[in-house]
Every structure is written in structure tokens, then in C-alpha cells.
Simulated assay, not measured.
Amino acid sequence: MKRIITLLALSLLVNSCDDGDLTQENISFDAVTVQRCTTNALLYKLKENEALIFEARNITFPTETTSQEINISATNRIIYRFYNSTVSAATICESIPPAIPVVTEEWTATGGKIVINTTAVKSTNDTDNSSKITGYNHNITFKNITFNKVNGTQVYETFTFGDYVMSTKTLPFAFTKIIKQCSVTKQLYDKNSSEALILDIDSALIVNAVTPLNTPRVGLISTIKNKLTYRLFSGLLTDDYFCNTTFPATPAISEEWIAVAGVADTSGMIEVTTTANGNAFKHTVVIKKAKLKKGNSDFLLGDNYIYGELLTTN
């Protein structure tokens, strides 16, 4: 009988020992906001005495809608830490971290992929249905990530890190609404010192004849005729930039947005109303429901964007 009891006790002791196999300890930061250190490339999530750290040293977070997949590596590290007390941003971001709290356990990712899906964050004007891009949201997920732990490894097929939102300066659109026209190409443009809105207008829309009441001349935006282009420049923009055979290289273009082709009675329409102005004619150009696009990002000019007024004479 004593031998049986001894064998049972030994069996229980052996089964209770850690054999080094995987132990499914759950890491959960789903309800925690992604933050970023201001002095380095660390993104992190904190929860009481836990920290999930993403060192994005060699990663560019783009200002356009796109996707990228990067290998977890020595320069793009993922680390999970457990502390002996509550952890704060100072613990993560300071070059010389405070002595307390102390790391009691650390897991380091040794393999897997970092997937970043970037989309534009927009604000919409409910009055005119225009929109502006105010930032970019970078949704970060780790695929097939393997953590090295003290007692083995742990693998997650899909691990959601979360959304990292970067704000961006909205496009100024600080135009004068006074349109100028090139004498040869008949191209229209409105400009200030740093941006231009250029319209390769159909010549049939600018005619020195008064349009009937509530009957403007109408055209559709396309990639050639009635092509609408917005450009933001990194240097001083003057009238010398326009009306040349080709556009000069300076000032350099920092952003270019091109309107998508219009659909009759639906979107991307140009309306020109012409009135007499003494011995001249005033052409008021309105762009209706136009969408401007750069890469995979876009924004709306609104239901009725007043491009401006052009004065012509016979």
C-alpha cells in the first residue's frame, strides 16, 4: 500500500513540473491606445504593470493610403515586458529610465511580419460636403509572431497591435478666386505664393457672350480636356511658373492632386456663367462635386466650389 501511495505522489510531482513546452499566457492590449515617444522611434501600449513595445526604427509611416509588410528584426523589434509595479511613459521613453519599476519578465519577438495598413483620416463639412485630410491612420498587425520567453516560446498567428494616428497639415486652399488665363494655351490658374489650382479648360466654355439666366456652359472634368490639378510647392511660386511650353523644375512640387474624371449630372462638373462687365466679360467658374486624388488618397472639393472669376475682352 505504501508503495502505491509513493508511486502516485511521484506521478503527480512529475506531471506538475514544467517540461519547457509552450504555455499559453494571454497578452491582451485591445482596449489600450497606441502612443509614441517624442524622442525616439518607440511605439508602445501600457496596461498597469505591462508594456508592449514596438521599436519602429527603420519604418516610414507614409502620408498616403498604402500597405506595407516588414520583417521583424533587430531594428524593428517587438518586446513585451512585465514590471513589478505600475509602468508609465517615462519608463519607456526616457534615455535613462527610472530605477522603479523593475522588469521582472521580458519576451522578445524573434520572427514574424509587421503589417501596416495606412488610410487617410478625413473631416467632412456637412454644409458643402467638402472633405479634408487631417491625418493618416496606421493600423499595425503582427503576423506569425514568435516570442522567446524564459520557459519556451509563444506564437500568435495574428496579433493586433492597434492604430497609430499621425496628424498632418491640411492643404491651405487659400486662393484669391481671381483667375488668370494663358494667352496661347488658354489654361486657367489661380495661385498664391505656395499653391496653384490649374484648369486646362475646354475653350468652348470661355466665350465672350452672356449666358442665359440659370443656363451656364457645362463641361466634364477629364484627364485631358478640363483637367484640374492642385499643386503645393516647397518654394516661392510666381506667375513666371505658368504659361510656358513646359512647367519649370522650380519651385519644386511637394504635393500634386489631380481631379478624377467626372460623370454627367453626377460629379466632376464645370459650370461657367458669363455676364457683361462694361466693355468686358466676367466668367464665373464653379466646380461641382469634384474629387481630387493622389495615389490612393482623395478628398472632395464640395458640391459647389467657386473656382473664381476671369475677365476677358473682345
Rank of each mutant, 00 (worst) to 15 (best):
R3Y: 10
I4K: 12
L7I: 14
L7K: 08
L8C: 11
L10Q: 04
N15D: 00
S16Q: 12
C17N: 10
D18K: 11
D18F: 02
Q24E: 13
Q24R: 12
E25N: 07
N26V: 15
D30I: 03
D30G: 02
A31Y: 09
A41V: 00
L43Y: 08
K47C: 00
A51L: 11
I53L: 15
T60F: 10
P62M: 06
E64I: 06
T66L: 10
S73H: 13
Y83G: 07
N84P: 05
E94K: 15
P97Q: 03
W107C: 00
T108Q: 08
T108K: 15
A109G: 10
A109F: 01
T110Y: 02
T110L: 13
G112W: 01
I114W: 03
T119Y: 02
V121H: 03
T127I: 11
S131T: 06
K132D: 03
I133N: 03
G135C: 12
N137F: 00
I140L: 07
T141V: 14
N144T: 09
I145D: 07
T146M: 10
V150Q: 14
V150S: 14
Q154C: 02
Y156C: 07
E157W: 01
F159W: 03
F161P: 06
G162S: 04
M166D: 11
M166L: 09
P172K: 05
F175R: 02
K191R: 11
E195P: 09
E195T: 14
D200P: 11
D202N: 15
A204C: 07
L205F: 06
L205W: 00
I206V: 14
I206M: 08
N208P: 06
T211V: 09
T211L: 03
T211K: 02
N214K: 13
N214F: 10
P216G: 02
P216A: 05
I221H: 01
Y230I: 05
T238S: 05
Y241C: 13
T245Q: 13
P248M: 10
A249D: 15
A252Q: 12
A261N: 13
V263W: 06
A264P: 10
T266P: 00
I270C: 02
V272F: 02
G278K: 04
G278P: 13
K282L: 10
K282E: 08
V285W: 04
V286I: 15
I287K: 08
N296Q: 14
L301Q: 05
G302M: 05
G302A: 03
G308R: 04
L310T: 04
L311G: 03
